[in-house]
Design a protein around this nucleic acid. Sequence first.
DNA 1: CTGAAAGCGCTTACAG
DNA 2: CTGAAAGCGCTTACAG
Lengths: 343, 343
Amino acid sequence: MPSKKKTTIYDIANEAQTSASTVAAVLNGTWKKRRIGEETAKAIRKIANQTGYTINMQARGLRRSRSGLIGMIVPMLDNRFFSSLAQAFESHAREQGLSPVVVSTLRDPEKEQATVRALISHNVEALFLAGATDPDSLAKICKRAGVTHVNIDLPGSKALSVISDNYNGAKTLTNALLARSSGIGANADIYFIGGIGSDYNTQQRMQGFRDALLERGHKVESSTMRPTGYAAELAESTVRDLYLQLGRLPDVLFVNSTLAFEGVVRFLRTLPIDDVRKCSIGCFDWDPYIELLHFPVLMVRQNATEMVAEGYRRLKQSNAEAKKIILIPTELIVSDERPPLKV
Amino acid sequence: MPSKKKTTIYDIANEAQTSASTVAAVLNGTWKKRRIGEETAKAIRKIANQTGYTINMQARGLRRSRSGLIGMIVPMLDNRFFSSLAQAFESHAREQGLSPVVVSTLRDPEKEQATVRALISHNVEALFLAGATDPDSLAKICKRAGVTHVNIDLPGSKALSVISDNYNGAKTLTNALLARSSGIGANADIYFIGGIGSDYNTQQRMQGFRDALLERGHKVESSTMRPTGYAAELAESTVRDLYLQLGRLPDVLFVNSTLAFEGVVRFLRTLPIDDVRKCSIGCFDWDPYIELLHFPVLMVRQNATEMVAEGYRRLKQSNAEAKKIILIPTELIVSDERPPLKV
DNA sequence: CTGAAAGCGCTTACAG
DNA sequence: CTGAAAGCGCTTACAG
């Protein structure tokens, strides 16, 4: 029975001895308004079920100039933070009866633009630009096409941006790290590792880190700031070099991103455990397994769910003041509230 | 200048003093075939750029009855394995000029069906069903609509399925675990924890586990098989109970899934490290942080990339024998090839 | 309570 | 080398 061609409202109209208009009305819910007979409606619905009718959204979309699609770009999907964003994004989409289209663009400005154009071609009803490297050119493209959009995670100057409160998150983390390592002096060795110096979020985090240190009377030399990128390898060798140079680990280590943290741990696990525990270690970003390492780690967890929720809220009240940056609070996670490893 | 209405080929035709057909041909690449003047083409392209024209895929799709969309359903996105699948899926999609639509359905059969229907409504050109709980009803829906699809990770009987070689992966892992714990007798305590007993993959893995044990002369009692589900909590309490019951850890622990493993580690970290190291521990599934724990873990890494690649390959040669299960080899990962932690 | 008809923005034979 | 026209499958005033 499975027909190769999809059934259309005309097929159903034929079968039901009625018109396409009537079928359309019954199937899209406007039939009460049109006061279509209960009988007719029932018959039509029956045939629709039998034939396995599914509406053609392209046709509907073309006619109503809406698509039922909502788009998101992210740097990559196989990453805790961005996949949480994607997950939240598409839960919301479904709630609103929209189909989510999530595409990763690998922090490549050209891919970002091409993807945004592609999504616009599909007439997405709105666009979430998460972690876009060049939000402002994307904003231009969107504006031209009249597509509303919001920046997530990385802010742009031409549209509403919902991002983590990186500054305060970093400051809180730094303060907590310092509180841990009681008894260190003004000349203590305190390092910031990972992230990209030109990146807005990294800058904010470095600023929060720096301010926390200054407020507590610590010196901050630029050599202690090491935005080594998002890769694990460079973070690993940086900590190793520090260790060799100081003859021990720094007193405090602020690692920016779970990926860089991976590299750091890769080195730390080669050291005697008591050495590692003397160091006060923090990670900006959260991973469940980091909580399970053999030494305590303070983490900043970003609220992906809330960032996306806020993005959706703002899209609805599209009256809202655009070009604004909305900061979403982060959460400080302390890994060793549970019984520590007995050695 | 940004116009609220999107530009269409008619707008461009007006401006360029030519016809919509010509504009269409220039913009979609068929213009050489139609031998349109280089001049005309150039003029049209210029206007298209100025006005920020983007083709309306809904219109094109409606006309050509293709959509440029390709769909995938996954249980969830915020999970290493499934997000790797999603990532691979959409790289391939982009390579082929398709826009990937990935939707998570939370292992809920109703959501799966609703989502598949929604995707079909959007005229996706093919469908990847990853980890679907009820692939066969989905297959029916797809067949009716004439949408080709392939099952990934969890097999169905009505369409091609590409899944991990769970049986051999588990067997290899078990053998490696046994090889580690040399000197244990036929009555050694060897446990399988996590996964769902009714789940095809879990069954295969249990079978591989069991066969490896039998071949090496170990007894396998059903009480040693504990498919406690995919949640961390139950796995945690199960290991704790085992520990209390045996007065020590089992000799070998096979944990099915990184999520269950999280629970296991949550308990293990409360034990003296030397106790933990006496136990030969394995995890079916991989996570970079598991490699960095303070005790060695053997892991089975599934090849998400290859599964997706194979899926795409098969879709192309749609002649291919359907209803077949294709097994993708897994990889055994040994976590402690690097220098171990000095205590 | 119901249907005929126009139109959404493309593509593509067909006719020049 | 180029254009007029039909048609993809819907929606929606409009007319009964």
